[in-house]
Design a protein around this nucleic acid. Structure first.
Length: 164
DNA sequence: GCCAACGTTGGC
DNA sequence: GCCAACGTTGGC
């Protein structure tokens, strides 16, 4: 199993949005960067887990965990002219862009802020800790995953918020 | 809103 | 294949 970090702007799609979908499962669509496309298509496996990161907000940080429940398939938003992610170069023969389905696992009782990540000596290799990283999906090592989880108080770590 | 750090595009 | 111009991301 692999670990990942998925970024999203909460104004566009937040962890609360994911929680509130009927099956708490959504396609992670709209990826329009080739490096990230390749990760989606070639590296991300069923059962992999991913941190949900809120970007371009105050404060930016990790807000919870998701699981990959469907591996790469063509991102149909690329072929929808009404979509903000429409790409006329995507065709049925060559979909060009891919998506995976993510399922909500848990929302943390507090945000693990970008500031904390930047301050932790063992997390300096994370792309997040470096300036100018713009990949919206990045791999996380098992060590980084464990360190980040221990930022959350143990008793609260297991909290999984169910839909209303 | 600013702007640094990228990624992408397209002329040549 | 180079690279300038342009677009986007995302922290601040």
């Amino acid at each position: 199993m692999n670990y990942w970090l998925f970024k999203s702007e909460p104004e566009t799609f937040s962890i609360d949005h994911l929680m509130q979908t009927p099956k708490q499962t959504e396609p992670w669509d709209g990826i329009r960067n080739y490096q990230v496309r390749n990760l989606l298509r070639d590296q991300i496996q069923l059962g992999d887990q991913a941190f949900f990161y809120h970007s371009n907000c105050t404060p930016p940080g990790i807000v919870g965990i998701m699981e990959i429940v469907k591996t790469a398939y063509p991102d149909l938003s690329a072929r929808n002219p009404a979509s903000a992610y429409y790409d006329p170069k995507a065709t049925s023969d060559n979909p060009r862009w891919y998506t995976v389905d993510v399922h909500f696992l848990k929302k943390f009782p507090r945000i693990i802020t970008l500031q904390e990540i930047k301050q932790h000596p063992a997390l300096q290799n994370m792309p997040l800790a470096r300036k100018g990283n713009r990949l919206s999906i990045t791999p996380i090592t098992q060590e980084e995953w464990q360190i980040l989880l221990t930022r959350i108080p143990d008793k609260l770590n297991a909290i999984s918020v169910m839909p209303a």
